[in-house]
């Protein structure tokens, strides 16, 4: 019998088997709660009920759901904090550039300190503000601003002029500490 047919029969019998297994396990607390398809299949075909290992594996998966939710909340809180810090930095910079200042957070999959170096390699000014945020600036068209002078930075990454490309595709850049 092909695996497709086997799968089909598992599905066909699942409804009645689920009820049967739940009743069998009704004496335990986990029984009525957990019934993955593979357990139903095992029970239908071999009369085998989930063992301690099955429960622990399933428990791991069961816990990862709430963990994902917690991670989502955490990410949201971090983004709120970044937004607040970015707004602070914008508020102290000249009006002309405020809307063009962006956070390095989220620029790539890497931590902001790595994104900051990558962005400096695109030819624009990047800086770290003492409140704890890496930011960069572009002009209104999204083009790099090589020589921007940020207000109160702790570190500034700035492209080296005249712009010259490395063998890896970015521009050369330097760092200035306050």
């Amino acid at each position: 019998m092909s695996s497709l047919n086997t799968h089909s029969s598992v599905k066909k019998n699942a409804g009645t088997t689920l009820v049967s297994m739940s009743l069998t396990k009704a004496g335990t607390k986990l029984g009525p709660l957990v019934s993955p398809a593979v357990w139903i299949h095992d029970y239908a075909k071999h009369g085998k009920q989930p063992d301690i290992g099955d429960y622990s594996i399933y428990l791991g998966g069961f816990i990862s759901g709430p963990a994902a939710i917690v991670t989502g909340f955490f990410k949201s809180a971090v983004e709120d904090e970044i937004e607040a810090k970015l707004n602070h930095v914008k508020s102290i910079e000249p009006k002309l550039y405020r809307n063009e200042i962006k956070a390095c957070y989220g620029y790539s999959n890497s931590p902001p300190s790595i994104s900051a170096m990558t962005i400096a390699g695109t030819g624009t000014t990047v800086w770290h503000h003492p409140i704890g945020i890496w930011v960069y600036v572009t002009d209104a068209n999204g083009s790099p601003v090589v020589d921007y002078q940020p207000v109160n930075p702790s570190v500034v990454y700035r492209p080296k002029t005249p712009l010259k490309k490395t063998n890896f595709g970015g521009y050369y850049w330097t760092s200035h500490r306050k």
């Binding site: 999959n109 890497s110 790595i114 994104s115 400096a120 390699g121 080296k160 490395t166 760092s175």
Partner: peptide
């Protein structure tokens, strides 16, 4: 292609002075 190890390398090769 989005590995931080690769991204970092591409970025730091642009840093001067090269000793840093």
């Amino acid at each position: 292609s989005d590995s931080p190890a690769l991204e970092s390398l591409k970025a730091v090769v642009g840093f001067e002075p090269a000793e840093g």
